[in-house]
Amino acid sequence: MFFDYHMHSHFSADSQMNMEEIIETAIKIGLDEIAITDHHDIDYKDDSIEFIIDKNEYLTALEKMQNKYKDKIEIKKGIELGVQLHIFDQCNRYLADDFDFVIASFHTAEKKDLYNGDFFEEYSQWEAYLQYLKTVYAVVKDYENYNVIGHLDIIRDYGNYDHKPDLMENKEASEIIAEILKQIIKKDKGIEVNTSGYRIDGENPMPSFRILKLYKELGGEILTIGSDSHSTDRIAQRLSSTSQKLKEIGFDKLSTFTNMKPQFHKIEDFAPKK
């Protein structure tokens, strides 16, 4: 069983791939299942771009692809939901019961954008990292309408810093991360392993292997894996090698989702079709 559970079509403002390009490439690579997870960020704090999806149009397009390719690949209705503390009700109304899989992600904190740098203006590097983690903790403590937290330590990818350390290097940060993971585990949620993270330091996905090891030690079991691809050349990138690293840490299964419920697959079976 080989799957990529984080990919973006043209319904995301930062991707130009159409759904058929994604699906045809996925089939060629040997994927058995994909979740297309386009960006929906309510009240996103950058006026230069809008990550809002017309849900009816999006779901109609997904259903069309499901029907067209039903004999070749399993396609799940996914979404990457930008979560903020003040939009829980809006998120819930948008999601309803219409998706197989929801990634809860953090592209803003304290109503400020991470990508354009606004969030970092009032903080030192580690202050920014800590404030971000506190925001994540506040969300996972009170919000539950999702399946996995996306790219948990994505804050490392932002900010104009020469050195981008593993967040586990800081005692206070590691303590907050542990509390985040405990909340996730307690509520039967999971985290994603996002292989686009290797661009940060060349050695780790998002979250880092140190965070993933802590998740395992705390009893975490629900893991999805995805490339976060915005172009066809990145689909399924480094999924196989990363899954083997996860096995070395001690994980023995990865998850897919149907109607927001996890199904588990042995890591040793995670490989392209022969």
Rank of each mutant, 00 (worst) to 15 (best):
M1F: 08
D4K: 08
D4P: 06
Y5T: 12
H6L: 10
M7V: 09
H10E: 13
H10Y: 13
H10W: 07
F11D: 04
F11K: 09
S12Q: 09
A13E: 12
Q16K: 14
Q16R: 14
M17A: 12
M17L: 15
M19Y: 02
I22W: 07
A26D: 01
A26E: 04
I27F: 13
K28M: 09
L31K: 03
L31G: 05
E33H: 03
I36F: 00
T37D: 05
D38Q: 04
H40A: 12
I42G: 03
D43P: 00
Y44C: 04
Y44T: 04
K45N: 14
K45G: 02
K45A: 09
D46H: 12
D47S: 11
S48R: 08
E50P: 05
I52C: 00
K55I: 10
E57K: 00
L59H: 12
E63S: 09
N67S: 14
K68G: 03
Y69W: 07
K70R: 13
K72V: 00
K77C: 08
G78V: 15
I79N: 12
I79P: 08
E80Y: 14
L81A: 02
L81I: 15
Q84Y: 10
I87D: 08
F88A: 06
F88H: 14
C91K: 05
R93T: 11
Y94E: 07
A96N: 15
F99Q: 06
F101A: 06
I103W: 00
A104G: 08
T108A: 01
A109M: 02
A109S: 13
G117L: 08
D118E: 12
F120N: 06
E122T: 13
W126D: 14
Q131R: 14
T135H: 15
V136E: 12
V136I: 15
D142T: 14
Y143K: 11
N145Y: 11
V148P: 04
I149W: 02
I149P: 02
G150H: 05
G150D: 04
H151D: 03
L152V: 01
L152Q: 09
D153H: 09
D153S: 07
Y158C: 00
Y158D: 00
G159N: 10
N160I: 04
N160R: 10
H163K: 12
E169N: 14
E169M: 15
N170A: 07
N170W: 02
K171N: 10
S174N: 05
I176H: 01
A178Q: 12
E179D: 08
I180D: 02
K182E: 09
K182L: 06
Q183G: 10
K189V: 07
G190P: 10
E192G: 03
N194K: 04
T195Q: 06
G197N: 02
R199F: 10
I200H: 02
E203N: 15
M206I: 05
F209D: 12
L212N: 11
K213F: 11
E217I: 06
G220E: 09
L223H: 05
G226H: 06
S227D: 09
D228F: 00
D228N: 00
S229K: 01
H230M: 07
R234N: 01
L239S: 01
S241N: 05
T242W: 02
L246V: 02
L246S: 08
K247M: 03
E248Q: 02
K253H: 11
L254H: 08
S255Q: 04
P262S: 10
P262E: 06
H265Y: 15
K266A: 15
I267Y: 06
I267Q: 02
E268F: 07
A271W: 04
K273Q: 10
